[in-house]
Structures are given as C-alpha cells and as structure tokens.
C-alpha cells in the first residue's frame, strides 16, 4: 500500500482570540491510497482546520505534512495554488459551483485551469457527470439543481481533475437524509470502483458508517482511529 498523506505532530494554534486556541493539536496520521475515511467529532473539534491543513489551504503552526512524500507546509503560496489544482479535489459544504456556468462547464472549468485539451475536457466532464448520475443535467445551471445534485456535481468536478485524493468538508450538512445517503453511495462507489482516496468530515451519525475508517477528533486531538470492515 502507498501512503498518500502523512502528518507528523501537526499543530494549528489560533492566537487571535483572548486565549490561544489549539484547533489542531499534535496530530500524526497516515492515509493510504484507496482509503475512505470519515473525520468525525463535535462542532469546534478541529475537523475543518485539519482538512484545510492537509488540503494546503492553511499553514500549520507546527509539524509537517507530506503529500506523496512532498512536504507542503513549507511551500510558497503561489506554489500551493498550483499544487492544489494538480493534486487535491475539494468538495465544500456549500457554494461549490460557479453559478453562471452549467454543470458540465463547472466540471470542465477545473480541467481548463489544468490546461487540458478541449477534447479531453469535453469527454471527461460528460463521463464524470454520468458517474454521479447526472447525465441528464449536463446543461443545467446550479440554481436549476437540487442541493444534492449540486453536491454531486462538486464530486464530479473534484474527480475530473484526477487528484491524488479528495477532501470533503461536511458535504452532507445541508442535505436531507435521502440526498445525503445518495451522495455517500456515490462516494462509496467511486472509492470501491475507481480506488479514489476520499476523506470527508461530518458530525452526522447517519453517514459515518459508510466509511472504511473513522477518525474521531476531540479538542483538536485524535481520540479514536478505527478501521471498519
């Protein structure tokens, strides 16, 4: 097995409040290729902060982050933009899509940023949207799609860029139960069939059991790390 992400003594302390907040406190973890991991924990436990750190969106105040063996916490900001574009797929809780572009244009957009060929963009965008069950919504704008459909487009976009792994921060938080399960079904399928490395955070008990590995955070530290078979 191949290690995709490795953190050692990862730490993020926010100093801007009255007392310093240890949002991420000494986390050392490894994520293997093809793993489907849920990061769980109550609100404020540091899930988002941790995902932002391994996603190269934020700088740690201590420790190291290795992506495929490359230390990213020392990278310059401009290098990180490009690194994210080529290596990491993102799905956020909301505001994932460009409202003025259709589903297909949204998926193509990331490949455009990667400077892929037009033909490849065209083909892959259609393919990815088929994978998430939206082949009939290629030309719909985000406001013509339900919340669940929008999140599926976001997943399609995240995968279209052929990332090393996909990070999803509370992707189901704004969804009803059915849509939430549906989204997890799709993520599970992509993980199994395409061997995509997926890490998602949630405090939603309903969807936790879909993951193959569940890491529980409490006050910025790992309190439990269990593999579910």
């Amino acid at each position: 097995m191949k290690t995709v992400i490795k953190t050692t003594n990862l730490q993020k302390i926010y100093n801007n409040s009255v007392a310093p907040v240890k949002a991420v406190n000494n986390i050392s973890l490894e994520f293997q290729e093809g793993e489907f991991t849920a990061i769980v924990g109550p609100s404020g436990s540091g899930k988002t902060t941790f995902l932002n750190l391994i996603g190269g969106l934020d700088k740690p105040t201590g420790g190291e982050i290795y992506i495929d063996g490359t230390e990213i916490s020392t990278m310059k900001e401009s290098e990180l933009f490009d690194f994210r574009l080529r290596n990491i797929g993102f799905v956020f809780q909301s505001y994932n899509l460009i409202p003025v572009l259709t589903a297909k244009e949204n998926v193509s957009f990331i490949m455009l940023l990667q400077k892929r060929s037009k033909a490849e963009m065209e083909q892959r965008a259609t393919e990815m949207l088929e994978q998430v069950g939206l082949s009939d919504k290629l030309n719909s704008r985000p406001n013509q799609l339900s919340g669940g459909q929008q999140q599926r487009v976001a997943v399609a976009r995240a995968l279209a860029s052929k990332p090393k792994f996909v990070l999803a921060d509370e992707p189901t938080a704004n969804l009803d139960t059915e849509s939430a399960f549906n989204l997890l079904d799709i993520m599970e399928k992509l993980n199994k069939e395409e061997n995509i490395t997926l890490i998602f955070s949630t405090h939603d008990q309903r969807v936790i059991e879909r993951a193959g590995r569940v890491i529980t955070l409490v006050d910025g530290s790992v309190s439990k790390d269990e593999v579910i078979s």
Binding site: F81, L85, F92, N96
Partner: peptide, 16 residues
C-alpha cells in the same frame, strides 16, 4: 467571498 474562496481553493490562480 465564499465563491471566490472556493475558486482559489480549487486552484484558480490569483492572477485569473
């Protein structure tokens, strides 16, 4: 702000 944050997160360069 959130949309612009999203765009820069997924790797749209500042120049763009």
């Amino acid at each position: 702000i959130r949309e612009l944050g999203m765009l820069m997160s997924i790797g749209m360069s500042k120049r763009r």
